[in-house]
């Protein structure tokens, strides 16, 4: 049985009678990396700040390791480590002195050994006694991770952690998170970078306009896709489009999903059927320029979900 580290239940934030976040509910298991996804202004940051207590919630509940945030706030907070937006530090102090500040505020005593251990983990050993104002953004981000995991929290919360990071920094962060997850630390991470989230997370919660519109498991979906329907892009000669469509219409395993710019057709079919389809197209006289499988990205899903939504809205309007 896996343990629930974080549960939010019908979390709502109203400002000036407007719902910034409306009835948001989800759960997180131990060792899970959960992505909170959505466009800017979807309510991700507000949700996160309600969980860490920076923003007062209008209604709803937050449980951390089964404890109610309202009743045992301090016990809950000592289970959380967080970077909220840009990691901010006391620039005129060294990285080490900054960490000492946070170490003193922990509920349990944090030894010098632990501080050095964390410094090593985030690869800041060489620069830790320099003043923070000399740090690059990536170094600050790493120091941010260090302060967040210093007190060995059960739940790590990162709000837009990839903002301003270079590709290598993002990759490093991803590796840290995976390493932490293997040690049983759960991470809640928010971002609007879809491709990043796909690589980083086990599950994603998609938010739009203050509401959770979808929760999905990334790995499961990849598996089911490869059995039932893989997205395949077929590129043929310009004047063979009609011919190709005819061939495809005659094959029951393949369905035409959509026609992309000009001579590319998007098909849905079992992965194993690819060679057979190719054979039939050639036999049907179609000049095939390309046939490749496309893994459906989080972006496709996200756009599909949000466009469904806007379709519904349009229907409602008419």
């Amino acid at each position: 049985m896996s343990q629930t580290v974080l549960e939010i239940n019908e979390l709502t934030k109203q400002l000036n009678r407007k719902n910034i976040v409306h009835n948001a509910s989800f759960q997180m298991k131990k060792g899970e990396i959960l992505g909170l996804l959505g466009p800017n202004g979807a309510g991700k940051t507000t949700t996160i700040r309600m969980i860490v207590g920076l923003i007062k919630k209008t209604s709803g509940k937050v449980y951390i390791n089964g404890r109610d945030l309202d009743e045992e706030g301090r016990a809950c907070k000592s289970e959380i480590g967080a970077i909220v937006e840009n990691p901010a530090f006391y620039d005129h102090m060294s990285g080490y002195k900054n960490l000492e500040q946070y170490a003193r505020m922990a509920k349990n005593t944090i030894s010098k050994k632990r501080v050095n251990e964390v410094v090593e983990l985030v690869k800041l050993t060489g620069a830790i006694h320099d003043k923070v104002k000399k740090y690059s953004l990536g170094m600050k981000q790493r120091l941010g991770v260090a302060q967040a995991i210093l007190h060995e929290p059960a739940l790590l919360i990162l709000d837009e952690p990839t903002n301003g990071l270079d590709p290598k920094g993002i990759r490093d962060l991803r590796d840290y998170l995976r390493q932490l997850a293997d040690n049983g630390i759960s991470t809640l991470v928010s971002s609007h970078l879809l491709s990043e989230m796909q690589l980083m997370c086990d599950r994603v919660v998609i938010m739009e306009k203050g509401k959770i519109i979808n929760i999905s498991n990334i790995h499961e979906e990849e598996e089911t896709e490869s059995v039932a329907g893989q997205l395949v892009a077929l590129r043929v000669a310009d004047n063979h489009i009609g011919l190709a469509q005819e061939v495809i219409a005659g094959v029951k395993e393949v369905t035409l999903s959509q026609r992309e710019n000009g001579s590319v057709l998007l098909l849905k079919m079992p992965y194993d059927f690819l060679p057979e389809l190719n054979r039939r197209l050639v036999q049907g006289g179609v000049d095939v320029f390309g046939l490749e499988s496309r893994r459906s990205t989080l972006e496709d899903k996200f756009l599909a979900l949000t466009s469904e939504k806007s379709d519904e809205l349009q229907k409602e309007a008419t």
Binding site: L54, G73, R74, I80, A82, N86, A88, Y102, A106, K107
Partner: peptide, 14 residues
Amino acid sequence: DNGTMKHLLIRPFE
């Protein structure tokens, strides 16, 4: 102003 207050208020204190 420089954002460090957020990192204080998420600690286990009132």
